[in-house]
Computed example of a mutant assay.
Amino acid sequence: MFLTRRTFLTRSTALAATTALPGRLWAGTTLTMGDIRIDTLSDGNLVLPGGFVLDGAPDEATEVLASLGVPTDRFEPPCNLTLLRDGTNTVLFDAGSGPDFMPSAGKILEALEAAGLGPEEITHVIFTHAHPDHIWGLLDDFDEPVFPEADYMIGQAEYDYWTDPDTVNTIGEARMTFAVGAERRLAAIADRTAFLTDGQEALPGITARLTPGHTPGHMSFVIGAGSDAVMVLGDAIGNPHLAFARPEWPSGSDQDPETGRATRKALFDQIMAEDMPVIGFHLPEGGIGRVERADDGFRFNAGI
Results as ranks from 00 to 15, higher is better:
Pro103Phe: 01
Tyr159Met: 07
Thr4Ser: 15
Glu274Thr: 07
Thr30Pro: 01
His134Met: 06
Ile223Arg: 07
Gly297Glu: 13
Tyr161Thr: 04
Ala16Tyr: 00
Glu183Phe: 14
Phe268Glu: 04
Asp39Arg: 12
Tyr152Thr: 02
Asp166Ala: 14
Glu121Ser: 09
Gly287Lys: 15
Asp43Val: 09
Tyr152Asn: 00
Ala187Pro: 12
Pro257Ser: 10
Val180Ala: 04
Gly252His: 09
Leu3His: 07
Leu210Arg: 04
Ile304Arg: 15
Ala188His: 02
Leu196Thr: 05
Gly217His: 01
Pro247Asp: 07
Asp256Val: 10
Pro145Lys: 02
Thr167Cys: 08
Leu46Arg: 13
Thr263Phe: 09
Phe75Met: 04
Glu110Lys: 03
Pro250Ala: 14
Asp296Ile: 10
Gly172His: 10
Phe178Thr: 02
Ala14Glu: 05
Pro204Trp: 15
Thr167Lys: 09
Asp86Leu: 09
Gly286His: 02
Leu138Phe: 07
Asp295Trp: 07
Gly98Val: 08
Ala266Cys: 02
Asn45Ile: 14
Trp162Ile: 03
Thr88Met: 01
Met176Asn: 11
Ile126Gln: 04
Pro277Thr: 09
Ala20Ile: 09
Ala194Tyr: 06
Ser251Val: 07
Leu210His: 13
Asn89Arg: 01
Tyr159Cys: 03
Gly224Cys: 05
Gly205Met: 12
Trp26Asn: 02
Asp166Gln: 15
Ile108Val: 09
Asn80Ala: 05
Gly280Leu: 01
Leu139Phe: 01
Leu83Asn: 00
Leu139Val: 02
